[in-house]
Amino acid sequence: MRWTLPNILTIIRLLAAPGVAIMFLYFSRPFADWLALCLFVGAAITDWFDGHLARSWKQETKLGAMLDPIADKAMVLIALMVIVGYSSMSPWLVLPATVIAFREVFVSGLREFLGDTAGTLKVTALAKWKTTVQMIAIAVLFAQGVFEHYFGMSVIGMDATLIDAILAGREEDILGLWWKYEGMVWTGYLGLGLLWIAAGLTLITGWDYLQKSLPYLKETR
C-alpha cells in the first residue's frame, strides 16, 4: 500500500462517516448538529481534493480506487440514517432516502458479483453529479436540523397563539423566532428538493449500471 496524501484524505473521509453518527451519541443538540454538519462538509470537500490530487500528482493507487467509492457510500448512507432517525419519518424524506440506499447496495452487489469484469461499471459523469447532489442535500438537511432545534428551544413555554403572533409581526420578536423559523422551513424545502433530485439521478445511474451488466448475467449453455 502507498500512503500518499490522496489516500490519507480518503481514509480520513472513511473514518469521518461513522463519526457523523457518533456525534449524536456523545453530544447534545444543537452542538451535535453543528459538529456533524462541519464533519460532513469537511469530509465531502476531501472527496474532491483526494481525486484531484491523485490525478494531478499521478498518485492513483489500487487502495485509493477501492476506498474512494466505499467512503462516499458510507458517508451518504450513515448521514441519511442519522437524518431519518432524528426526523418525523415523513414519507417525503424516507422515500428518497430508501431509493438512494437501495441503489447503493444494489450497485455494490453488482460490482462484487462481476468481479474482474466490474470495470464495465466505471463511475460515469452523471454518477459523480449524483454523489455531489446527495452530499449537498445532506449538508442542507443537517443545517435544517440546527435551525429546527434552535427554534424549538426558543419557543419553550410559549403557546401557539403567541408564536403565531410573533411570526406574523404582531408581537416583538425578542428571541429571533422569525429568522430561525424561516431558516428551518427553507433549508427543509431545499434539502428535500435536492434529495429528490439525487434520488432521481440515483435511479437513472442505477438503471444504466444494470443495463451494462446484463450481458455478464446471462446463463451460459
Rank of each mutant, 00 (worst) to 15 (best):
F102Q: 05
T131Y: 07
D33P: 00
R2S: 14
S154E: 12
L9E: 01
T220S: 12
A165D: 08
E172D: 11
K180L: 09
Y181W: 15
E219V: 15
I136W: 08
T131I: 12
A118Q: 06
V155P: 01
M153D: 14
A21M: 14
G42W: 05
T131D: 09
L175I: 13
L5G: 03
V76T: 06
I11N: 04
L67D: 00
I11K: 03
Y86H: 12
I174C: 08
D164Q: 11
V107Y: 07
W196S: 09
V84C: 11
D33E: 13
L15N: 11
G157E: 04
G51W: 10
G51C: 05
R111D: 10
G206H: 06
F24W: 00
E104L: 01
A198R: 04
V185G: 02
G169P: 04
M158A: 10
L93G: 07
K62F: 15
R2D: 15
R29H: 10
L95A: 15
Y216L: 09
M184L: 15
T46C: 05
D72Q: 01
A160W: 12
T4S: 08
F27R: 05
F40Y: 13
G119L: 11
Q59H: 02
I83W: 00
S90R: 03
A160L: 09
M75V: 05
Y216W: 10
V82C: 05
G188Q: 05
E171Q: 13
R111F: 01
T117P: 08
P6R: 00
V94H: 04
N7F: 12
A165S: 11
L114W: 13
G191Y: 01
F40E: 09
A74W: 04
G42D: 05
L67K: 03
V105H: 06
D68A: 00
Q211T: 14
V155I: 14
Q134I: 08
T46P: 00
D173M: 06
M135T: 06
A16D: 03
I22S: 01
T131V: 12
W92A: 09
L121Y: 01
K73Q: 14
A79P: 15
G109K: 11
T161G: 07
K128P: 10
I83S: 00
Y181R: 11
K122F: 12
M75L: 14
G157Q: 01
D50F: 02
D116N: 06
L25I: 03
T61K: 01
L9A: 00
F147R: 07
M158K: 03
L39D: 03
F27T: 02
W196Q: 04
D72M: 10
V41S: 03
D164P: 10
A71I: 15
W34E: 00
P18C: 00
A44E: 04
I204S: 05
G157W: 02
S108W: 13
V82S: 02
Y150A: 09
I156K: 12
